[in-house]
Design a binder for these strands. Sequence first.
DNA 1: GCCGTCATGTCCGAAAACCGCGAGACAGGG
DNA 2: CCCTGTCTCGCGGTTTTCGGACATGACGGC
Lengths: 183, 183
Amino acid sequence: MKKTQPEAFTLDRIATPVGEVLLVTDADGAVRAFDFTDYEARMMKLLARHYGEARLTPGRAPEAVRNAVAAYFDGDLTALDGLEVKTGGTDFQRAVWAALRTIPAGRTWSYGQLAQAIGKPAAVRAVGLANGANPIGVIVPCHRVVGADGTLTGYAGGLERKRWLLAHEASQEGTGQGAFALD
Amino acid sequence: MKKTQPEAFTLDRIATPVGEVLLVTDADGAVRAFDFTDYEARMMKLLARHYGEARLTPGRAPEAVRNAVAAYFDGDLTALDGLEVKTGGTDFQRAVWAALRTIPAGRTWSYGQLAQAIGKPAAVRAVGLANGANPIGVIVPCHRVVGADGTLTGYAGGLERKRWLLAHEASQEGTGQGAFALD
DNA sequence: GCCGTCATGTCCGAAAACCGCGAGACAGGG
DNA sequence: CCCTGTCTCGCGGTTTTCGGACATGACGGC
């Protein structure tokens, strides 16, 4: 049992080209969680783990956040970069998630590169774990990490979506920088 | 809506015939913890377990509480009965602690009787554990529980103090009801 | 009588399993 | 030869599981 301050969060739902997403924000407008509706159970589990009995009340997220999400899916790939996010998790996990946000849209890193970036070049596999435990999909772009040989190894929202997101980000950037192959 | 703070508690210190005690109260004047100064570490651990990063600020507890404590040690054995207490812990533990407050001063129960009182006659040993985990000594009178044969089996504040408290309560009641033997 | 045994709830530490990896060894196929 | 696909093994944080230790007492065997 952790520190259990009930902490009231807002749960919003937004339609996107890859399906409806869940968007959890706190009283300060910071994003606490973001995931696809069909993985709602997993998101709830993560929230419960980090915040104990956090209470979710359905409602509308701040317009600034909603607009940023819409803009991103609409082609403005940097729209999410300014959003404030807040997470629980261990120091290691937070380091990984922070590093993820430094990967620019249209680029991909390998798990090894990511491990290197946080100063633990050997913790490659652990990085994969932390990646999978990311509570704020898309905004914290865990989908921009692929295998050393370019394979899309896994994605909590389904590989299909990972593929779509990367294509979305690549196509907007132009065709020149393709650091990975879409099959 | 204000942020959920780590819950501010007040920490007071009071002198008694058996040594200085620590008295933790909340903003409503309810008692959250009570223990002897020489077991401060254990009390802090319990507080941390139940309330996370609870913040303790040294200060004076409400006069009503201070007076009740003084009166009890002065011979008014029922002085503590009216105090409001609040605890964390599991359902089981809270059931045990609630039952403890029904034991009148000057009387003792066995662990078996206590287990019976909460409707789990077989959970005798578990009751002992819960007893030991009581964060509010004296006010929640865990010292009034002894072995089935009358032995003072254990006390978180030291058996010496348990003996003293029971003698204190017994002597004030008169000599007739001695349900236990002091050695 | 004395001793071993078992039931019961909770916490705690140790150990093991779990992986969204990646490097190296090896065997085939052009 | 070179290239590639498959397999094995070590890596390291987090989560889960497991096994004890206890503020006891009732019971069955010697």
